Every structure is written in structure tokens, then in C-alpha cells.
Lab assay of single mutants.
Amino acid sequence: TFVEFNGKKVEYPTPEAAEKAAKKLAKKLNLKVTKKNGNYKLE
């Protein structure tokens, strides 16, 4: 499962880990999380 932000793509071993990381990053970077095709994107 990938988390995409600032043009970077980071892969996580589980969807749970990706979701957790996405939410944490979104909060830190003041972005919102969108889920697309099972992957997460911060914008």
C-alpha cells in the first residue's frame, strides 16, 4: 500500500500501517488524505 505526498511515494507493508502513516503525515503537513485504488494520497 502506497502513501503519496509531495511527489514522493512511500510503500508500507500493510494497509493499516499506510493508513496510520497517512493520517499522521496529513496532520503534520496540514493536508487531507484521499484514498484511491487502495492507496493514500495527501493533498
Rank of each mutant, 00 (worst) to 15 (best):
23 K>G: 07
30 N>W: 06
6 N>P: 02
37 N>M: 07
36 K>W: 13
39 N>F: 09
23 K>C: 15
22 A>M: 04
29 L>E: 03
32 K>I: 14
23 K>A: 11
34 T>G: 04
43 E>C: 13
7 G>V: 01
27 K>M: 11
43 E>K: 06
24 K>C: 15
38 G>E: 06
39 N>T: 12
12 Y>D: 00
17 A>E: 12
27 K>I: 10
35 K>Q: 11
36 K>E: 15
40 Y>D: 02
7 G>N: 08
24 K>H: 12
6 N>W: 14
27 K>G: 07
31 L>D: 00
34 T>K: 07
15 P>H: 08
32 K>W: 06
33 V>L: 12
3 V>E: 00
17 A>V: 06
13 P>N: 08
42 L>C: 03
30 N>C: 14
14 T>G: 05
33 V>H: 02
40 Y>S: 01
9 K>I: 13
4 E>Y: 12
7 G>I: 01
14 T>K: 03
8 K>N: 10
40 Y>T: 02
32 K>N: 07
31 L>E: 00
43 E>I: 13
40 Y>W: 12
34 T>Q: 07
38 G>L: 04
38 G>T: 04
8 K>Q: 11
41 K>H: 15
20 K>L: 12
27 K>D: 08
3 V>D: 00
30 N>D: 06
38 G>F: 04
30 N>V: 05
38 G>D: 06
42 L>N: 01
15 P>E: 11
7 G>T: 04
1 T>E: 02
4 E>L: 09
37 N>F: 08
17 A>P: 01
14 T>I: 03
20 K>P: 00
25 L>D: 00
18 A>R: 01
9 K>E: 05
32 K>H: 09
35 K>D: 05
1 T>S: 11
17 A>W: 06
10 V>L: 12
23 K>T: 11
34 T>V: 13
17 A>Q: 11
22 A>K: 01
25 L>P: 00
24 K>I: 14
38 G>R: 05
1 T>W: 15
23 K>Q: 12
24 K>N: 11
43 E>S: 09
22 A>H: 00
2 F>R: 04
1 T>R: 09
3 V>I: 08
13 P>I: 06
14 T>R: 04
8 K>E: 08
26 A>Q: 03
2 F>N: 04
40 Y>F: 13
4 E>N: 04
32 K>Q: 09
30 N>A: 07
37 N>Y: 07
23 K>E: 09
31 L>C: 07
43 E>L: 10
33 V>N: 01
41 K>I: 15
28 K>M: 14
39 N>P: 01
27 K>S: 10
36 K>A: 13
27 K>T: 08
16 E>Y: 10
40 Y>I: 09
41 K>S: 12
4 E>F: 12
11 E>V: 14
7 G>H: 06
25 L>N: 01
10 V>I: 13
20 K>T: 11
43 E>N: 06
13 P>E: 09
9 K>Q: 09
35 K>T: 09
27 K>A: 12
15 P>Y: 06
32 K>A: 07
17 A>C: 10
14 T>P: 07
37 N>E: 11
41 K>L: 15
23 K>N: 13
4 E>C: 14
10 V>K: 12
43 E>W: 12
42 L>E: 02
16 E>M: 11
33 V>T: 04
30 N>R: 11
41 K>A: 10
2 F>K: 03
10 V>H: 09
19 E>M: 11
13 P>R: 10
17 A>N: 04
42 L>W: 02
27 K>C: 14
2 F>V: 08
31 L>W: 04
35 K>Y: 15
43 E>P: 01
27 K>H: 09
10 V>D: 04
7 G>F: 05
40 Y>R: 02
23 K>V: 12
18 A>D: 00
9 K>P: 03
9 K>N: 08
11 E>Y: 15
30 N>S: 08
13 P>G: 08
13 P>C: 09
15 P>K: 10
33 V>S: 03
8 K>A: 08
39 N>D: 10
37 N>G: 11
15 P>W: 09
6 N>H: 13
5 F>K: 01
19 E>C: 13
11 E>C: 15
16 E>W: 11
6 N>C: 15
14 T>L: 02
28 K>I: 13
5 F>Y: 13
6 N>K: 09
7 G>W: 04
29 L>H: 12
7 G>D: 06
7 G>M: 05
33 V>I: 15
14 T>H: 05
25 L>Y: 06
9 K>L: 11
26 A>W: 02
2 F>P: 00
7 G>R: 05
4 E>S: 08
41 K>V: 15
29 L>W: 14
34 T>W: 06
32 K>D: 04
18 A>H: 00
8 K>G: 06
39 N>R: 06
29 L>A: 04
36 K>Q: 14
30 N>Y: 06
1 T>K: 07
10 V>C: 14
33 V>P: 02
16 E>N: 08
32 K>R: 12
22 A>F: 03
9 K>F: 13
24 K>T: 13
26 A>T: 02
19 E>Q: 09
34 T>S: 09
24 K>G: 09
22 A>V: 08
6 N>G: 10
24 K>E: 13
25 L>I: 10
6 N>A: 11
21 A>I: 07
3 V>P: 00
5 F>G: 00
19 E>P: 01
18 A>F: 02
29 L>F: 15
31 L>F: 04
20 K>R: 13
28 K>S: 10
16 E>Q: 12
13 P>V: 06
29 L>Y: 15
34 T>N: 07
40 Y>H: 03
37 N>V: 04
24 K>P: 00
38 G>W: 03
33 V>D: 00
22 A>T: 04
41 K>Y: 15
20 K>V: 10
38 G>Q: 05
5 F>S: 01
2 F>I: 11
38 G>C: 06
18 A>P: 00
10 V>Q: 09
17 A>D: 10
14 T>F: 05
30 N>H: 13
33 V>K: 02
39 N>Q: 09
8 K>M: 12
28 K>P: 02
10 V>Y: 15
12 Y>N: 00
3 V>H: 00
11 E>S: 13
19 E>K: 11
1 T>D: 02
22 A>L: 04
30 N>G: 15
12 Y>V: 00
41 K>G: 05
26 A>R: 03
29 L>M: 10
35 K>W: 13
29 L>T: 04
